[in-house]
């Protein structure tokens, strides 16, 4: 039973990534690839956020700070030259690990609070980071922005490396999410999310798993920030540490189903195109944000736990009902009643 689920999951993942990979090769329009880059970017961000916000139940609103730190780390490293253009991608893991380590004290302090207080503390961290990005002009260039050297890629396929880098990061984020859920880390995180005090009382290594989730989540987001900076080529504090990016990752995970493997991906593939569509229909005005919020509100009202958990709940209930009916029928035909049924 469990093995079958794994195989179905592998096939699903294989098909999904194969489809993503062949899009540029099939030669879709430029706008499509551009849209896909941002969609996959948000899927990677949201999946990374989900490691902490979904699995551990610590809804960080400050994650874009790590995105921004990753972006600046990349921009500062490669402001002069990027060589052949490909080697900078190899520096991303270093950025991810460095930011992951840097995030540990922040996680340790902020995760002494919970739920809504935690959300506020992390949002404070976001604004501190943004303020620093504006004011540490010697390092970040402040409001003037910071630039990354342009890679010597063939203009016809210029976007491809960035697109594939985002896909790799999404695959890593999902791989970690999958690994967590299959290991005692995930089991421990579920207990932290459900009842942290009780978790302490049955010997769960609460602080350790929280910090692991925080650091991995932050490091992943920083790597995505690095690729983003490289792709955009020029970064400003208000865009690198943009609260809307934080809101994006959170909403997408909520929409698709936080704490699930595919929820953040599904949420991103709905919301990012929707956002682009509304942004174009409403032109330059920020009115599109209203439409964007409306879509989200409608879905959350009807599926409060997000799309995937609501569907799997419904399936489970239907299956349980079917099973119950079958068992009733069996009990009627059988002469003896088993002890379990008496207890139930």
């Amino acid at each position: 039973m469990k093995r079958m689920i794994t195989r179905a999951g592998l096939i699903r993942a294989g098909v999904f990534f194969a489809l993503l990979i062949i899009v540029p090769i099939l030669g879709g329009p430029v706008w499509l690839l551009n849209l896909l880059i941002f969609t996959v970017m948000y899927a990677a961000l949201s999946s990374s956020w989900n490691l902490l916000g979904g699995l551990a139940g610590y809804p960080s609103l400050g994650h874009v700070a790590f995105f921004g730190i990753g972006a600046y780390a990349f921009a500062l490293t490669f402001s002069g030259s990027v060589g052949d253009g490909y080697s900078p991608f190899l520096v991303l893991p270093v950025i991810g690990i460095a930011v992951g380590l840097l995030s540990l004290p922040i996680g340790w302090v902020s995760m002494r609070t919970r739920a809504d207080v935690f959300a506020i503390v992390t949002i404070t961290f976001l604004f501190i980071t943004q303020t620093l990005a504006f004011n540490l002009t010697k390092i970040t260039g402040g409001a003037q922005g910071a630039s990354v050297a342009a890679p010597p890629f063939d203009p016809a396929t210029y976007d491809w490396p960035f697109y594939y880098a985002m896909i790799v990061l999404l695959a890593i984020a999902m791989g970690i999410s999958f690994y967590f859920s299959r290991s005692k880390i995930g089991l421990s995180l579920s207990t932290v999310r459900a009842d942290e005090d009780k978790a302490h009382g049955v010997g769960v290594r609460v602080t350790a798993v929280k910090l692991i989730a925080f650091a991995v989540s932050a490091g992943m987001v920083a790597m995505v920030g690095g690729v983003w900076a490289y792709y955009i080529g020029f970064i400003y504090p208000q865009f690198a540490v943009d609260p809307l990016i934080t809101i994006g990752m959170v909403l997408m995970a909520f929409l698709g189903g936080r704490g699930t493997l595919w929820g953040p991906v599904l949420g991103s593939f709905i919301l990012v195109p929707a956002q682009q569509f509304f942004a174009q229909s409403f032109g330059a005005s920020q009115l599109y944000l209203l439409a964007y919020a409306a879509v989200f509100l409608v879905i959350m009202l009807f599926l409060p736990r997000g799309i995937l958990p609501s569907i799997s709940d419904r399936l489970r209930r239907r299956r349980a009902a079917a099973l119950g009916a079958a068992r009733d029928a069996e009990a009627h035909t059988a002469d003896a009643v088993t002890p379990e049924e008496v207890k139930a």
Partner: peptide, 27 residues
């Protein structure tokens, strides 16, 4: 106080305790 989202089996397993190595091992 139990963990309602976890299965009965998982509720028992998590309470058995684990070593650092097992933390990274199978659920």
């Amino acid at each position: 106080r139990i963990f309602p989202e976890l299965s009965v089996e998982e509720n028992l397993v998590i309470a058995a305790g684990y070593s650092w190595r097992q933390l990274f091992g199978r659920r």
